[in-house]
Design a binder for these strands. Structure first.
Lengths: 234, 234
DNA sequence: AAAGTTTTAGGACATATGTCCTTCCCAATG
DNA sequence: CATTGGGAAGGACATATGTCCTAAAACTTT
């Protein structure tokens, strides 16, 4: 992690993502731009709350490790998104661990300044309300989906979301096998079982296994299987 | 459902739950008090958004029915709680169905007045932010818990939450069997499987089956099994 | 009280998923 | 070129869970 002293880049981000309107003028001097490399942790579950972060570049992985040591991926995030919003509102420690998946830029605001200058700033409150409500909605759908459907269906939905997203640096319709473990943790199953499911999907002709990646052969069929629900959509 | 024309009762609720501070003065004339009987539906998933509701008396069941017809109970609610908050912020149709479990009183506010008088009312925004953040937190924990642990563990946690809550009209440590189907739907499993798990817990001596109810015999043991997590706590 | 009806528990079997371990492939290295 | 090490896929077996159906119990109605 390193701080980027580049006021122009900061201005560029503020403008591109239309962040200024949601922030109080007084806050602007206290914004810091940080950069993280692939694999670096932005925060770890249990860390005390310090900053509210705005993701403006790159991709994040949000996950949680259970007392038993099992990892559950909660989501991937791309700009513009917010990290630490729940913690800010509740004043609690970080619930999850956040890791940079690519090179990541984040704008950080220390809670001290938020409390001082923006705790009654309507645009920010509305912005947070909007963001958190969306998160709740996604989480809620995700919970239902996970409880109601088996791994095969969830994976179908996952494939559709991930493989046809140009931002993912993946060839369209293909999923690199190195991401399979992540996929398993996101879906909430074991790597072993995911392999079994892929095997089954192969037999059905929906996907094909090549060395290094998995290719979607029948997008429509997968969509059918997933009940047309794109639960992992960003 | 019927409207209660009782300004004094309304005032009583506003005072008891300290609702006035969060509402804009201009809204007060537009509050309506409704009563629902056991079993009545307050709203059904897919209904267009109309009101924001404040639960001030009784108990609600929030559930969702999948396209396949499976019911998943998302939560039970007791005063003070809010219904329709997510829908209000997002401007979407109702996501879930809400049913009165007992006699229920709700204060309803039509979105028309909220938009007109309170869309910039900081106390309300903060209140909603707080409520929704809590909901998110619960939902998030619930998702992890469901994905990581088997039904036995979840049911243990459920028993601890429900059986030792005096508001539940249950003898302490006992769960009426008529609530078993609800329990299964809340935990996200089948009634059949829940029975199997109860059988197993019986053999372990943690609970005992009597006609009409299930009795907790070893609270500490259940808590151990549930990893001391009370995920269904209200 | 007898007959029918509804509710509740559980049997049988199939499927879904987890755990552990082995095998295979490929790349890096001496 | 043979050796080794690591990652990826899959076999074997156990457990978890779902579906469908039956049996037993409780409750209604006549």
């Amino acid at each position: 992690m390193r701080e980027i002293h580049d006021p122009e880049l900061l201005q560029y981000y503020l403008k591109t993502f239309e962040i200024k309107p949601i922030l109080n003028e007084d806050l602007l001097p206290y914004l810091t731009l940080y950069s993280y490399n692939h694999g670096e942790l932005i925060c770890t579950q249990g860390d005390p709350y310090n900053h509210l972060y705005l993701l403006v570049k790159g991709k994040l992985k949000i996950f949680n490790t259970s007392p038993e040591g099992k990892t559950l991926i909660l989501s991937f995030k791309t700009p513009l998104d917010v990290v630490g919003d729940i913690e800010y509102v509740q004043g609690t420690d970080f619930i999850n661990t956040v890791e940079a998946v690519s090179e990541v830029h984040m704008i950080a605001i220390h809670h001290r300044w938020l409390n001082k200058y923006a705790s009654d700033h309507t645009p920010l409150l509305k912005f947070l309300l909007n963001v958190i409500t969306k998160k709740f909605f996604v989480k809620s759908s995700s919970l239902s989906f996970n409880l109601l459907y088996p791994v095969e269906v969830r994976f179908a939905s996952y494939l559709l979301s991930v493989c046809f997203d140009e931002r993912d640096a993946l060839y369209s319709g293909k999923l690199s096998t190195s991401h399979l473990i992540d996929a398993a943790n996101l879906i909430g199953t074991s790597y072993r079982h995911l392999n079994r499911v892929i095997q089954h999907l192969s037999k059905e002709g929906l996907v094909e296994r090549h060395k290094g990646f998995i290719e979607v052969k029948n997008r429509e069929g997968l969509s059918e299987l997933a009940n047309h629900r794109n639960i992992y959509e960003k």
